[in-house]
Simulated scan of single mutants.
Amino acid sequence: MRNRRHRSRAVVALATAALLGTATLTACDAQGGDSASPGGPSAHDKPSPRPTPAWDTSPRSLAAVGDSITRGFDACSVLSDCPEASWATGTDAEVRSLATRLLGKERAASHSWNLAKTGARMEDLPGQIEQAVTERPELVTVMIGANDACRSSAASMTPVGDFRADFTAAMRTLRSSLPKAQVYVASVPNLKRLWSQGRTNPLGKQVWKLGICSSMLADPDDLDAAASERRNSVRDRVVAYNDVLEEVCEKDRRCRYDGGAVHDYRFDGDQLSHWDWFHPSKDGQSRLAALAHRQITSRKPLP
């Protein structure tokens, strides 16, 4: 009898557990719980990450934002913009701009827009982006940051935190209106290398006295400890800006940083303006267009 009662209790316990289990599963399902449906993933499976959208290697429209480099400053005449020589949207056949390479000459004329401004700093980028989104481009090119380091003195350079906040705000503005637009972000050029290249040219040094990038170019032949420290502080700030550009861009699934290609490019005398020996010449603008085109037409980011 004792064994029979023991077996009866066991049967009752098993049946109760089965009923409770069924009720629990039913309750979870009714509430949209995480129980597995037939053939579906189990409750312990991790959700699949969102797939990275495929990079479009042939966008059909382009808006360029940035500073004097994108305006072709000093590429054609002294202290003047020359947008036809712009690496991004120019029409000069010698340059073969990015827009021309991607869209062809005729379409580039109607489907590319240069919204850069000479002298612009990162704080101006959100406003430029607001203008760009009205054109609804498929690709936005960004080249900005040199003027944040090129100030009247090294102490006046844009703080890295402010630089980051403004770039983040610009990307947020872009995404609120154009969630699927692609973005190409060029690194800030190596300003110290440009000083080293241009300081041997007498004409260039005379133009520098007019106030071009004083934090780096003032007293170009002064090599004492204080001048070297000043130039190195500008160099280091540019490196920090490029780190910000890369980090913020990496958080956006449709943003591609150039991997430091512009910063690492060694502009020589032929690629620098023969007016100021600091901004790119037409040849230099063409090299920038080629660097951008190579990155944008690659299915994966290039090292």
Results as ranks from 00 to 15, higher is better:
L139I: 04
G33F: 09
V248Q: 05
A170T: 05
R4W: 12
F278H: 05
R151M: 11
D34H: 14
P202A: 03
D258H: 10
P280C: 01
D29C: 04
G66L: 11
H274W: 11
D92P: 07
V160L: 08
C150F: 04
P59K: 06
A149E: 04
N242L: 01
T158S: 15
Q295I: 00
S273G: 15
D252L: 06
M143P: 01
C28V: 12
A116L: 05
A225Y: 03
R50Y: 01
K105L: 09
P83I: 00
C249S: 13
P280T: 00
D258E: 13
P220D: 03
L288V: 01
A36R: 03
D283A: 15
A63M: 06
N232H: 11
I144Y: 07
R7F: 15
C28L: 15
A54F: 03
L302E: 13
Q197L: 08
R287E: 01
Q131M: 05
P137D: 04
K209N: 12
W208G: 03
A165R: 12
R4Y: 13
L103S: 08
G39M: 11
G21Y: 08
A120D: 14
P280R: 00
A218N: 10
E94Y: 02
Q131C: 00
R107A: 14
R230F: 00
F267S: 11
A23Q: 13
A120E: 12
Y257T: 04
A169W: 00
V188K: 01
G161Q: 09
S8H: 10
S281G: 04
S77C: 10
S228E: 12
T141P: 08
L223A: 07
T52F: 03
V185S: 04
S196H: 05
T70F: 10
P41M: 01
R164F: 05
W87E: 02
R101A: 06
A186Q: 12
